[in-house]
Each structure stands twice: as structure tokens, then as C-alpha cells.
Design a protein around this nucleic acid. Structure first.
Lengths: 193, 193
DNA sequence: AGCATAGGCAAGCGTTGACTTGCAATCCAG
DNA sequence: CTGGATTGCAAGTCAACGCTTGCCTATGCT
């Protein structure tokens, strides 16, 4: 048995929180150590490098995120709502983690492995999309495009809000959003049941 | 007359290019100087600081961007296409500049002024949305939500592609996208004319 | 031609970031 | 209780970044 004195979950939580807040470069190891209540040297003894620390932390946090728990039920609208709800809940937990990861990933390739668990979660959602497409209930297209169409508006709304331009942007209503996704944004039109 | 020897447009172009590529911190003044063919000291003599240089450069580039030239025509679908086309064209010129700006803006407030021209451009588009909403041709909602719904999917698709996960994501087709935006993603449904 | 100005060049300053190291204190297992 | 592993602490290394400075050259205007 290896004695565990440090509170690793707390470290990982701090890492992700500061990563979302300040980005990879902006989240310094000193600040992480201070916020997690451990010594900076401990971080390097345990994880070797900042990149490895972030990899462990991000994968750890993603393995328990609501979006990984969505499953196929046969009810298209309900499943889309579940996906949207899960994304909103994930955003509540970890802020703008998805756009932040995508942005940083386009700059530093060494964070690619930090994306693996998140990517697996996305894969689950994509599978659901594909099933509904093959049943003819959703437009046939690259399922990642479908997912972008479903979550993109929410992500961008959050990005606008977080940009702090003084915009009182309302939170997206999951039900309205799924309806708009399915039936479009023309008003006063009989809904297709 | 002040003699102008340095090629300012070239500097500004380099700044924006490296900013989109590596982010604010990642785009070092040394690399900018080298890529622009000027001496690093010149940058500081002319612009005082990195932040001011970026402010000037980003505002300069945004003042000539396609998305600022969209105008109201009375034809909803055509105008939406113009907006989408303008965004796609802007992305072709400057890559992921919008998500990058939004991400960086949430971290460094001193870049807020670098967003002013971009923000004015967005304002023009928002005005168009508001007009169509008041005519009852678009769902009544916060116009920035409408804009996010229209451009969000495209932005996110680009972010996925740029994240370099080896995904052969197809480019969004402007016409398809506007149709889906207006009429939704349920297939085999008679379109509302 | 003459002069003010701008830019190139090279060296350097101060700070900060990731990462290391040696030592003492502490913890757990056997 | 004892030994081996883990952490805290403090100091420090090294590189990079933003930014400055002094000097010299080149330019363009009058």
C-alpha cells in the first residue's frame, strides 16, 4: 500500500478551476500549489511536469461529468434535452471548459492526451445522434455537425457572457432550444408532431 | 509630414496572424518583429507596449472585415446567408479570430478596447436581427441569442477542426445551414415558404 | 547640403515561469 | 519502535519574455 497524504482530488479540482479561469499558461504552478494547499515541489515530484499534471487533472474531472452519462432512450426530443441539460450542468460545474480545451488544444499539441476522456464522452453523444439519423428522425449529415448545431449556440452564448462585455445575456432555456433546433427559428408555424 | 518607413499594415497583419495562431501570451514580441521584418525595439518605440500594439492591430484588421459590410435588404433568408457568408469569409481571412478574441477577453480585460471595432460590427448584425424579429419573421428573443444560434454551430465546427483531432469535418454549407436555422433539423418535412 | 527623425543593432535589465535540490519533519507499515 | 517513503520549506537554476537604452546608419524634407 502506498500511503497517500496529499488530497489528489482537491489538486485536480484546483487545476481545472484555474485552467478554465486563466488558461494553460495563465494557471501557474505556484498559484495551483497555493490554492490546493500543497507545496509546489510536491506537484513536480508527483506529476513530473505541468503538462502531465494537467493531463491527469483534466481526465480525472471528465470521468465524472454529466455529459458522459447520457444514453439512448428512443425518444429523440427527450434525449436531445438530456444532452443539452448535461452540457449546461457540466458548464455549471466547470465553466467554459469545453471552449477552453478546444482553444488550447489548437495551440499546444501536448495537451492532446488531456482530451482523451472528454473525447470518449463526446463519442457517446455522437453515437446517439447517428442512431436517430439512421432512423430518419434527424437530418442526415456528419454527426459532429449535428452536435455542433445543438451545442454550438449554447457554447457561444456562454463565451459571450464570459467575455464580460457587460451583456445581460439570459441563460439558454433547454426546452426552447431543443424545439428551435428541431423546428427552426421561424415563428408562428404549426409544430410537427 | 512624418516620414513613414515601416510597413504598418504588414506589422498589423503579422500580429493578428500570430495572435490567432498562438494566443496573446503565445505571440511573443520577438517573433512578431522577426516575422514582420522589423526590429523588436521599433515595436516598443512606436506602440509603447504589447497590449497597445495588439489593440491597434486588431482594430485595424477588423475595420476592413466582410462582416461589417452586411446590410438590411428586406429578404430574411438572403440576409442570413450574407451574414453566414461574411462570417465564413472572415474566418478564411483570419482563422479562428472570433473565438480566440472571446476566449482571451475573458482572461485579460486590458484587451477590451481591442474588441471595440469588432463589437461595432456585431452591433450592425444585431440590428438586422432585431428588425426581422419585430416584423415577426424571426422568433422573438434576445438578438444575441439569435446570432449565437446562427453562427454558433459554424464557430464550434471550426473550433473542432482547428483542435486538430484528426477529424475530417466538412465545411458548413451556408445554404443548408440557413435552412436548418430557419426550419429546423427534422428531415422530410414540407418547408414553410 | 543639412538636419531632424526613424529605424537597425546589440546588449542588457527586471521579472516571472517551470522545474530542482538538500534537509528536516512527519507519516505509515511491519 | 524503526525504516522507508512523502511532504514542507527555502533556496536556487535556467530560460524566456516584456521592455529599455545608447549608438550608429539611413531616410526624407527643406
Amino acid at each position: 500500500m502506498i500511503p497517500k497524504l496529499t488530497d489528489e482530488p482537491r489538486i485536480f479540482e484546483v487545476v481545472v478551476r484555474l485552467f478554465v479561469l486563466h488558461g494553460y499558461e495563465g494557471a501557474t504552478t505556484k498559484e495551483i500549489a497555493r490554492a490546493a494547499g500543497v507545496n509546489e515541489a510536491t506537484l513536480f515530484r508527483k506529476y513530473g511536469s505541468k503538462a502531465e499534471l494537467f493531463e491527469r487533472a483534466i481526465n480525472y474531472q471528465w470521468s465524472d461529468v454529466p455529459i458522459g452519462k447520457v444514453s439512448y432512450s428512443g425518444d429523440l426530443e427527450a434525449d436531445l434535452r438530456s444532452i443539452v441539460d448535461a452540457y449546461l450542468e457540466t458548464s455549471l460545474l466547470h465553466g467554459a471548459i469545453v471552449p477552453m480545451l478546444l482553444t488550447e488544444l489548437s495551440q499546444r499539441r501536448d495537451l492532446e492526451t488531456a482530451f482523451s476522456v472528454a473525447w470518449a464522452n463526446i463519442g457517446v453523444v455522437v453515437e446517439i445522434m447517428v442512431r436517430y439519423q439512421s432512423q430518419g428522425l434527424l437530418q442526415a449529415e456528419d454527426p459532429l455537425l449535428t452536435l455542433s448545431a445543438l451545442l454550438g449556440p449554447i457554447m457561444v452564448t456562454h463565451m459571450f457572457r464570459r467575455a464580460g462585455l457587460g451583456l445581460p445575456l439570459p441563460e439558454v432555456d433547454a426546452e426552447d432550444h431543443v424545439r428551435s433546433f428541431l423546428d427552426g427559428r421561424r415563428p408562428d408555424r404549426p409544430r410537427v408532431i
